[in-house]
């Protein structure tokens, strides 16, 4: 593993597989245990530096670090010195001076974790940067697919929705490609980036044409505000053309699964009956997120203390 986890685009197959295998070992080690805790990172400090509200991601990282016995500091940028104009660099240097070994950063600006990595000696984990990447989400998605379907190579994955603004989509595209899956992105043309043609994916505007061939359907959150900027005419039209409802779910193959990174807009991109169906891995993804983030922290930090 490299020192940082900044983007899934720079994970090679061996590194990515190592994370997934390590997560599986952690799951096995903790299965049936009453105290879900390993001593691996005792004495190490992990800082959660969150410039955006994301309770679920923060809690997931917090739990992961605590289960590895690390000390955890939650540093919310809101209401702190940061909101009073302190720069990212000054914040980074302060956290480092306090002895942080890893900084888990969520930031609204694409590339913020890359900047941070220039300024600190410890590890930086990207917990979502702007519209760029969210690599641990992709890793937990890959882990979930592998557990459900037993493999990743050759698995056909449809990623559906606001690809343009989605860091989850970008991370999944690169990671799934690296791991041998076949990815199709499905969206109205307005929600695909110019340049998507250079990605290692198929592109489709037609969800109904893609569903029967998909082993995995990954629905992306679509923000209603997008319609104000004319990305689509109305929430209703979006839902009709690109939402996953019961009728569309019936077109899926028997083994196919439905994923969503959360939080969901029920009734917008995904119908309640789909989200709550047996095909849905949404709750499972949350649990797997903790194991995968434990694996990431372990691999980034664990090796260096011994």
């Amino acid at each position: 593993m490299k020192r940082h986890l900044l983007e899934s685009a720079d994970l090679d197959r061996a590194d990515a597989t190592l994370v997934l295998d390590t997560a599986a070992q952690i799951d096995q080690a903790l299965a049936g245990r009453e105290v879900k805790k390993l001593p691996t990172l005792r004495g190490r400090t992990v800082v959660n530096l969150f410039y955006e509200d994301s309770t679920r991601t923060r809690i997931s990282f917090e739990l992961a670090a605590k289960r590895l016995s690390a000390d955890v500091i939650n540093f919310s940028a809101k209401g702190s010195s940061v909101s009073k104009g302190e720069s990212l660099k000054d914040t980074a240097l302060t956290l480092e001076a306090m002895g942080s070994d890893a900084i888990v950063v969520r930031h609204g600006a694409s590339g913020a974790p890359h900047r941070l990595a220039n300024w600190v000696r410890g590890s930086v984990v990207n917990a979502g940067d702007g519209t760029h990447e969210h690599p641990t989400q992709a890793l937990l998605d890959a882990y979930t697919i592998r557990r459900r379907l037993g493999r990743l190579a050759g698995v056909r994955v449809a990623i559906v929705g606001d690809v343009l603004h989605s860091r989850v989509a970008r991370s999944n595209v690169w990671l799934l490609h690296t791991l041998g899956a076949e990815v199709t992105v499905v969206a109205p043309p307005t929600l695909l980036p110019v340049g998507v043609g250079t990605w290692p994916v198929e592109v489709s505007y037609d969800l109904d044409a893609v569903l029967p061939k998909a082993d995995v359907v990954m629905m992306l959150r679509v923000q209603g505000e997008r319609m104000n900027a004319s990305y689509f005419p109305s929430a209703r039209e979006y839902s009709r053309r690109y939402g996953l409802d019961g009728r569309r779910m019936a077109a899926l193959g028997d083994e196919a699964i439905v994923m969503h990174p959360g939080p969901m807009n029920r009734g917008m991109e995904i119908a309640a009956e789909v989200a709550d169906s047996v095909r849905s891995t949404i709750v499972e993804q949350v649990g797997n997120g903790v194991s995968v983030r434990m694996a990431v922290l372990y691999l980034l930090l664990g090796g260096r203390s011994e």
Binding site: E133, R170, V194
Partner: peptide, 18 residues
């Protein structure tokens, strides 16, 4: 807009300047 809109902006997640 943050950078030239094209292959690289698509990948970097920076808003494109066409």
């Amino acid at each position: 807009a943050q950078m030239h809109e094209g292959d690289r902006s698509a990948r970097l997640g920076l808003t494109g300047w066409p």
